[in-house]
Design a protein around this nucleic acid. Structure first.
Length: 420
DNA sequence: TCTCCGATTAGAC
DNA sequence: CTAACGGTCTAATCGGAGA
């Protein structure tokens, strides 16, 4: 029996989230900006129609956008995460197997469903009614084809938000795949698209039909799997359990350039606190701590410096105070005066589950304070993130990112909901 | 010459 | 008036070091 994999993808997700609590913006052209109000990361259909590109720097399109009455909002991740959870939980309750693929997408397995297309329509309707978030559904025998089908559903209003690749005849499949550029395929990005074009592979149909051993030799396993998936041979399974992260990064661009170590350390200890909190939520510890600093790469007129340094711990930890101190030491070693720093961050890796951590009982007592960290997490959960923090976070702290257009915290603050 | 491992590349969203 | 350009994550592959 052919598999019926459905990809459910929220439409213009961040923009749609903002509109849930601001129905008056339903027809206003709208974009959501990345951290630091830097780039456009979500666009309403009206904004797309104006030619505003995904990932475009806001300062580049701002004049055009504002001339057409486009409203730009800073991103409000707490809101998006909250609505995402609601969407995912509705889908989980209405489909047997689910993989949450990203904040706005999930795969569900509808294999064996009597009428998967009708079922998808129901899912769509339910998510819309219960959350206010519009979604489209693509159905196919493999994940790659389900993604492609989803694209078709989004692009063609005739599909009413659901497109089923499995329902096509071989001739219809061929015709459809001829019309889609290879760059639209999941796993084919900018670089590959160019290299494939050099080989005469322009459409999805071309990729599907290419000589497999040659493709493999030239482009590697990843693309071979993609090709197989286009040929309806499943190579990428549904991942129902989300694995723990192998690496946790916390980094930010600053609202203003920083020239002093103290400022960098304030930012870095906040990053340490956030990264460790994340380690704790997934009940794991890290053994390698890396710190990096960046000057502004878009200012070739200024001296550039982007150093990085790692410290290996004798035993894995998730203790904010310990990691903060390491990060401070690394910052001192990396810091050179005379540069204007625009960004910094930390990377935690060599991650293992807490239960597997072997304590060195011959060594003097390590700074390992699970109960203190638990108390800290409880307090911050109740009274807000960073209510209890490391003092280094405050010393010389001037690094906050720009976020001039953020919407209120609708889902966590009653007062934020506009009165009707 | 082989193996290992860190760095780099490419992609996703 | 001018400058203003995200953040996290994974897997595969490359290339140098050391065995």
């Amino acid at each position: 029996m052919t598999r019926q994999l459905a990809l459910v993808d929220c439409n213009n997700f961040y923009v749609s989230c903002e509109r849930v609590f601001r129905p008056d913006l339903q027809r206003t052209p709208l974009v959501v900006l990345s951290n630091n109000d830097g780039c456009v990361v979500s666009r309403s259909n009206e904004a797309k129609a104006l030619g505003i590109k995904m990932g475009q720097p806001w300062f580049e399109c701002r004049a055009l956008a504002e001339a057409h009455g486009v409203l730009a909002l800073s991103s409000n991740y707490a809101l998006y995460a909250d609505l995402s959870n609601r969407v995912m939980s509705i889908l989980r309750d209405h489909a047997p197997r689910q993989e949450v693929y990203s904040i706005d997408e999930c795969f569900v397995d509808l294999t064996g469903c009597a009428d998967s297309k009708q079922r998808s329509q129901q899912l769509r309707k339910r998510v819309g009614q219960w959350t206010g978030i519009p979604v489209c559904v693509g159905i196919g025998p493999t994940k790659t084809l389900a993604k492609l089908a989803n694209m078709v559903a989004k692009k063609h209003p005739r599909s009413k938000g659901v497109f089923d690749y499995n329902a096509l005849t071989d001739a219809q499949k061929e015709k459809l795949l001829q019309q889609i550029e290879v760059g639209e395929v999941w796993g084919v990005g900018r670089k590959l698209r160019v290299r494939l074009a050099d080989r005469g592979i322009h459409t999805v149909c071309d990729l599907r039909a290419a000589h497999t051993p040659t493709l493999r030799a030239e482009f590697g396993v990843v693309l071979e799997k993609t090709q197989r998936e286009l040929q309806e041979i499943p190579c990428i399974d549904l991942q129902e359990v989300t694995p723990n992260n192998q690496q946790i990064i916390s980094s930010r661009s600053f609202g203003h350039m920083i020239e002093q170590v103290a400022g960098l350390k304030a930012a870095l200890s906040t990053f340490a606190a956030n990264a460790c909190a994340k380690l704790r939520t997934q009940q794991s510890c890290a053994a390698l701590i890396q710190v990096f600093l960046h000057t502004n790469r878009f200012r070739p007129d200024l001296p550039q410096y982007m150093p990085a340094l790692a410290m290996a711990l004798p035993e894995p930890t998730n203790d904010t105070l310990l990691v903060s101190r390491c990060v401070s030491v690394l910052a001192d070693q990396l810091f050179r005066p005379g540069y204007q720093y625009k960004k910094a961050g930390i990377v935690l890796s060599q991650i293992t589950p807490v239960g597997q951590v072997q304590h060195d009982w011959l060594a003097p007592t390590q700074a390992h304070r699970p109960r203190l960290m638990q108390a800290l997490d409880t307090l911050n959960a109740r009274y807000g993130r960073n209510t209890v923090r490391v003092s280094a976070q405050d010393v010389g702290a001037t690094w906050q990112m720009r976020q001039e257009r953020k919407s209120p915290n609708y889902t966590t603050d009653w007062g934020a909901i506009p009165s009707v």
